[in-house]
Amino acid sequence: MSGQGLLEVKEIVKRYGPLTAVDGISLRLSPGELVAFIGPNGAGKTTTYRCIVGLQRPDAGQVLVSGLDMQTDRVEALRAIGYVGQDVQLFQYLTGEETLRMVGEIYQIEPQQLEDRISRLLELLELGSAANRLVRHYSGGMARKLALCTALVREPPVLLLDESFAGLDPESTVAIRGELDRLRQNGSTILLSSHVLELLERWVTRVVILAKGRIVQDLGRSELNELLSGRFDSLTSLYLYHTRQTG
């Protein structure tokens, strides 16, 4: 983990009056990493994500994306990020296909490449038959899948997924997992939060556990394997041990 990371979060702090939601979190994510960002409800995961993409401003600290400061080079930094938040935000009166086309045009993806990606993603996530339907008629799961597509269609260097697997069917989960693996092999960095720890246990390359706004454990794959083959029988027990320690 030496050198400059694709995503660097330096000592960010976010307070809500007396409550410190994020308390000096630092992260450095290198190309090809798939990082599980886990913690109990209210640990500060979503606030961290929002601070990274600029939806919220940290009270202190800095966010660098490919060396670009999110505060001073916001547009260029955002160009490298794909973000899917906890609450799905989509235009209600566009169809699924139009939504992806609009995103592609904002990111100025070459038209033929965009066509190929849209068609592949829609088919992969079984949204093909709903592609020409307005988003307002999508079910909750379909809307979430489409939101994921809006991030995947850009194939961004940094992908931030906040509880993006919640409410998805197993087929879609497997398909997205495959797609994320493909992106990671191409050098993208993925920061992923989820409460489905069984999904993450054998998949991710690194685990970051958050509690009360602080990182309480940051483990690489080899360290994680070592712990899982010895003291802890699963990622769940490791997670529970650390979160209970912090009270």
Binding site: F91, Y93, L94, T95, E97, E98, M102, E105, I106, E115, D116, S119, R120, L122, E123, G128, A131, N132, R133, L134
Partner: peptide, 24 residues
């Protein structure tokens, strides 16, 4: 891009979605 898609949203709202999609 933003203007075009804004008008498309309006058109979809008034007249419903149109067109077909090519899915691989």
């Amino acid at each position: 891009t933003l203007i075009r898609w804004r008008f498309r949203r309006f058109a979809n709202r008034v007249g419903g979605p149109r067109g077909t999609v090519r899915v691989r």
